[in-house]
Computed example of a mutant assay.
Amino acid sequence: MNKLLLSSLFIFLITFSANAQDEAQIDCSDVKTGVFFIPSDDVVSFSTKIVRTENFQREYLSDGSERTSRLKWLSDCSYIMLPDAKKEGEDPSESLMRQYGGIEVTYVKRKGDTIYFTARPHKQKGSFDDLFYMIKIE
């Protein structure tokens, strides 16, 4: 009986350790370029298609608008997103993004093509508990 209990506990610990290690070591090698999709949800009422090169991304929102941003990579899994250029009639969110020095995005978990991330104003200290996700489609 004790051997069975010890064996079960050992298998559980190995499984738990492997899962924890997978989440701690996120593979971000293919997120610097590609096409991604962020679906609408209870917080954001529109979906977004993102076309990204290594240092630039264009967002196509389901409401018909577009945004462009420059990307400054801090690590393989973290970057600062900055509005591309100040322009007349700038979207209020772009103006706010500029005021805070950009939006810092950090990938925290990945399951296949679904990438979970946090996002916060770069110059604002602290962390946000909200977890967002996007799906790599190309």
Score class of each variant (00 low, 15 high):
15 T>S: 10
4 L>T: 15
85 A>R: 08
68 T>W: 08
105 V>P: 01
71 L>Q: 09
129 D>P: 01
49 K>G: 00
98 R>A: 14
99 Q>D: 11
108 V>R: 05
36 F>C: 02
2 N>F: 08
39 P>N: 04
17 S>Y: 06
42 D>R: 14
88 E>P: 06
114 T>R: 05
134 M>A: 07
17 S>I: 03
25 Q>V: 12
32 K>M: 09
20 A>E: 11
59 E>C: 05
132 F>S: 10
75 S>Y: 06
10 F>N: 10
30 D>T: 15
117 F>E: 01
100 Y>Q: 13
9 L>E: 01
90 E>L: 07
14 I>G: 08
7 S>K: 08
87 K>C: 00
122 H>T: 11
4 L>F: 15
55 N>F: 05
25 Q>E: 15
60 Y>I: 04
57 Q>P: 00
15 T>E: 00
130 D>E: 13
47 S>G: 08
116 Y>Q: 01
63 D>K: 03
95 S>L: 09
57 Q>F: 05
38 I>E: 03
123 K>S: 14
114 T>F: 01
81 M>K: 15
107 Y>A: 04
2 N>E: 11
66 E>M: 09
14 I>R: 04
112 G>C: 03
57 Q>R: 07
49 K>M: 13
75 S>M: 03
21 Q>N: 15
33 T>N: 08
86 K>E: 09
102 G>R: 05
50 I>A: 04
16 F>G: 01
69 S>C: 09
35 V>E: 07
61 L>F: 12
120 R>M: 14
40 S>P: 11
112 G>T: 02
131 L>M: 10
23 E>A: 11
89 G>K: 02
4 L>I: 13
33 T>M: 10
62 S>G: 03
3 K>H: 10
75 S>L: 00
72 K>V: 14
17 S>G: 10
19 N>C: 11
127 S>L: 07
41 D>S: 03
